[in-house]
Design a protein around this nucleic acid. Structure first.
Lengths: 136, 136
DNA sequence: CGGGATCCATTAGGATACTG
DNA sequence: CAGTATCCTAATGGATCCCG
């Protein structure tokens, strides 16, 4: 225990207060999960309804769309507006909060775009070195 | 249909070419997974050996540390240096690539720090509205 | 149309024990 | 010290059916 405490005191994740560590994980979990980010990205252009979202986020299932939206709703990252019309209509939209997040995410996507060749090259190389040639 | 087609044409994931979509997911998976980012963050201060990493990343298991390091290694996000000494010593360090990633991540962490109260507040409020009071 | 509920497969990830 | 291998559980997530 004492060792852990000292280690944590010395370098609790590169200067992160470790109090924050916990909730940073939560944010990361949300950002890093399979769909949240995609949904937010799709909503950037403007409000969309449920089925439009489902079609614009390629490959998402109703279940995951529903769950993702619920999470985003709880975190205040999207708003839900139900119009009491004859064919029910519900629109989801971004909030100022998610828009600010989107800026960061956009830079992350930019990073990915810039460096993905590098990563790919490294992976291919690693696979070749890993034990046998990829071809057989 | 026409609405969807237009929406998709307008916003196939916020202007992302959808070719890139795939590898962006990969990057996001790596960044968003439970440990990669923490390991990278801890390595920011300088090279560390296996056991030091394990102690500095609170809660990580040997298994996950090993797997995470392997992934990072394959992607060229860390380097591994084994010193042929009597007690074996292995050091892991960041690369220019991971340092550039760290800048983005830092801003993400900054975002989290700035807005986590907002998110928490929204969650609490959502929980209250959800059907019953949080207290019971 | 906008979901909720259920069933099922895959995976992530922790605990433990063992090795060089 | 620096891992590897195995087992097992919990969470992720897709498919499907159902309902207001």
């Amino acid at each position: 225990m004492e060792v852990t405490a000292q280690a944590a005191a010395r370098s609790p994740c590169a200067g992160i207060p470790a109090d924050q560590m916990d909730f940073i994980r939560q944010v990361l979990d949300r950002v890093g999960d399979k769909w949240s980010l995609l949904v937010v990205a799709v909503l950037e252009a403007g409000p969309l309804r449920y089925t439009d979202l489902q079609r614009n986020v390629p490959g998402i299932s109703q279940r995951m769309l529903t769950l993702t939206l619920r999470q985003l709703l709880e975190d205040g990252l999207v708003t839900r507006t139900a119009y009491p019309e004859v064919p029910p209509r519900v629109e989801y939209a971004l909030t100022p909060l998610s828009r600010s997040l989107l800026e960061i995410v956009t830079s992350l996507i930019g990073w990915a775009s810039t460096h993905h060749e590098e990563i790919r090259a490294h992976r291919a190389r690693a696979a070749t070195v890993a034990g046998r040639a990829p071809q057989g």
